[in-house]
Write a protein that binds this DNA or RNA. Structure first.
Lengths: 142, 142
DNA sequence: CAGAATCCCTTTTGATACTG
DNA sequence: CAGTATCAAAAGGGATTCTG
């Protein structure tokens, strides 16, 4: 008779995955070999997340529309992030030489795959953020 | 006879989830109601991710050990992140009044849950980061 | 309209030195 | 040890101007 709970199994699974992962993100590796540091850092940036989620929802968005949705972002940061996200392959930028000029941003297939991963994370965070805010308050009292 | 591919289904699922989510992260909401902006931004920070992953792998870590693993982090940022992550409920800090002093960090159950979510993201990123690096290079050539 | 460019200011880092 | 203190450098932010 086995006495292994599903929580135990989860722990074991987690440990296994982490072990495999740390072959790659080990601190002794050169920076290029640490995906968290060098790739995820852009993609998990708070502004990038919002940009990508909005582009996941609205298939096509223009600069000023994005700026309106990603509330609080500045021209500068938005245009920087868009360039970086394009360069990393998450989105495409299509320019139409009209007057006035029109520029459309949309996710690549790769970006769409990433959205699915992001959604899992943000859904979890949405469910759990009240818990975090409660923790934060409790901590301030101490 | 239905002609719906699994990719179609995924798209539909994604759209549904995003629609539900944007009730919360809408740009018109005050910042407190936007979990991405206010809660995920700490947790998805590049340093936070590395700290949490290492604490997922090594159940107990001390300050200098963490600093060694989370390669490149400065004293200041590490101690700031540890404070913030403790305050948000991801980890605990235990101090032993010995000489020399000893401080142990470990994940809370909440932090352990978060690790599972993080692993899904970082695993995906690990698989795909070569693609990203290739994109980046191609982009520079243009 | 979609930004790039500029200026200027604030915040966040990063590196190093220092202390209970 | 486990941090804080300090200070210089970088990144972010806001406002405004400019251009095709």
């Amino acid at each position: 008779m086995e006495m292994v709970t599903s929580a135990d199994n989860q722990q074991i699974e987690t440990a296994k995955k982490l072990k495999k992962m740390f072959g790659h993100i080990d601190y002794k590796n050169p920076p290029e070999m640490c995906p968290v540091r060098d790739v995820l850092s852009l993609a998990s940036d708070k502004w990038s997340i919002l940009i990508i989620l909005y582009l996941g929802f609205f298939p096509v968005l223009r600069f000023n529309k994005l700026k309106k949705y990603v509330y609080g972002i500045s021209n500068k940061v938005l245009s920087e992030r868009l360039k970086a996200l394009e360069s990393d392959g998450y989105l495409t930028r299509r320019m139409y030489a009209e007057v006035p000029i029109r520029v459309e941003y949309r996710l690549t297939n790769f970006g769409k795959n990433y959205v699915d991963k992001l959604i899992e994370l943000t859904e979890w965070m949405q469910i759990n953020s009240p818990k975090v805010l409660k923790n934060k308050k409790k901590f301030q009292v101490k």
